[in-house]
């Protein structure tokens, strides 16, 4: 048993080393507020290639606002977000759309188009691609198989459970083969077994498609399973950064309280 544990730790260390291939995303001095309330205050973050970066924090600390700023669903008030060396705020509409295809986004409640079947949901992001119908269909089947839901292809979103919707949402995110994936609370509202399945799926996706990810969560099990590195946010500020183990032994009591 100990040996297995040791081996797992070695794998984790290897994974961390693998991620050390330079940043794919750099966030510098990012601030965002709504009316008088400042949500993000001078955030500085780097996401390395192949890395799973978990952003941890209590509800309302601005975690979701952070990833919405990355894809410009929200416009930052201050600061820069560079993805693959390009300043996101300087991109024109067409460039922004091209860049967004390289950044997958899994929404908290999957955000499946409820008037479309699972097949059409997955095909939707491909509508502007040059692929033939046959290629699109094959890709849809491949993605559904990768999330273990090939049988659900003709179902409507309302016929799926919460966990299944998350998986389909992930398949739809993956269909454009993004290099970066942003997960907004991927395990929220799911039972522990499904949470574990989703966490393992995130790891599988990282290994299979060599993606870099930012995972917003306050589910510690998900954070433990998926993270290569973690940052902890408190009231719009990054207060701690390190691996799961490092943060577990943090001197800051508030940070440690997440792990208890």
């Amino acid at each position: 048993m100990e040996k297995v544990k040791e081996k797992k730790e070695t794998d984790e260390e290897k994974d961390v080393k693998d991620t050390d291939k330079g940043p794919v995303m750099e966030i510098t001095h990012l601030s965002k507020g709504f009316d008088a309330k400042q949500i993000l205050k001078d955030i500085n973050l780097t996401l390395n290639k192949g890395e799973n970066l978990v952003v941890l924090g209590k509800s309302g600390t601005g975690k979701s606002v952070l990833i919405k700023c990355i894809v410009r669903l929200l416009e930052p008030d201050k600061g820069k977000i560079k993805v693959f060396g390009k300043d996101m705020s300087a991109l024109k509409d067409t460039e922004l759309n091209d860049m967004r295809k390289k950044i997958g986004f899994l929404f908290q409640h999957a955000a499946l188009y409820d008037s479309m079947s699972v097949r059409d949901n997955l095909k939707f992001p491909l509508r502007v691609s040059d692929k033939t119908d046959k290629e699109k269909e094959d890709l849809v089947v491949e993605m559904l198989e990768s999330v273990g839901l090939a049988d659900a292809i003709d179902k409507m979103p309302s016929e799926l459970s919460g966990g299944m919707q998350k998986r389909i949402g992930l398949a739809r995110t993956m269909i454009l083969k993004p290099e970066i994936i942003l997960y907004d609370e991927p395990t929220t509202g799911l039972d522990p077994v499904t949470c574990k399945e989703i966490s393992n799926l995130i790891l599988e996706v990282q290994k299979k498609y060599k993606t870099s990810s930012i995972i917003i969560t306050h589910d510690m099990e998900c954070a433990r399973t998926t993270s290569n590195r973690m940052v902890v946010m408190k009231e719009g500020v990054v207060v701690a950064e390190g691996t799961y183990k490092e943060l577990q032994k943090s001197e800051d009591e508030w940070v440690r309280s997440f792990f208890e």
Binding site: L73, R100, F105, F107
Partner: peptide
């Protein structure tokens, strides 16, 4: 409300 419009936007569809 269910972020479906945001989902379209982030997948590069107008």
């Amino acid at each position: 409300v269910t972020e479906q419009i945001d989902a379209m936007e982030v997948s590069g569809i107008n």
